[in-house]
Amino acid sequence: MLKVDALSVTYGGLLALDRVSIHADEGEFIAIVGPNGAGKSTLFKAISGTVAAAHGTITLEGADLLAVPPPLRPHRGIAHVPEGRQVFKSLSVADNIAMGAWPLAPQPAEWKRTLDRLHALFPVLAERSDQLAGTLSGGEQQMLAIARALAGKPRLLLLDEPSMGLSPRIADLIFEGIQTVHKTEGMTVVLVEQRAVEALSSCNRGYVLESGRVVLQGSQADLLGDDRVRKAYLGR
């Protein structure tokens, strides 16, 4: 499905990603954990095209993704929930969700079904439909950012730090929502998280990224059982 091969990204001479290779098979749930500044968000930005790749390749379903202009990448089935949520604050909740379906331009009947499905997942968004997104709480904005991404019926969902700045209770709610979506819709999910326990316990496979390099990879059991992971990220 997604294959990132020996990808390097530089920011003004600094190496943010150093020959990173990851892959995600159809329907897999991949977790990428690592400390702040490890390059996790940069990896997603390279996939979405908002930072340029210096070396390496990214392919989606066998096609060269780097050759696709950034605004056309979502049209290939990629949805990116960016770090810090990045909702459209001056647009209503309903319009925010509608923007997520930009590539599909759905018909009203189809759109109503999609909206019902998303409202069932995060009922608070139905209540706040006409409210400006900027007036939502952090947790609600995160739900909105995820709902907005799902509105485009992506085949690959990139989630960047969905728990950032949220209380543990709300973060649990978000993780639950993500797992439900992965189960019911079966799309490929790549989750970047600092909260390694939650991330690794929901994934099939995972990668540990440190200082722009993949330092460890393996199945959920491998990573949860690894001494270094337990010490550095799980705190036990």
Binding site: S48, G49, T50, P70, P71, L72, R73, P74, H75, A79, H80, P82, Q86, V87, F88, M99, G100, W102, P103, R148, G152
Partner: peptide, 9 residues
């Protein structure tokens, strides 16, 4: 930037 993630040119 978020608009670009939505596929808006």
């Amino acid at each position: 930037v978020a608009a670009t993630y939505m596929g808006i040119d």
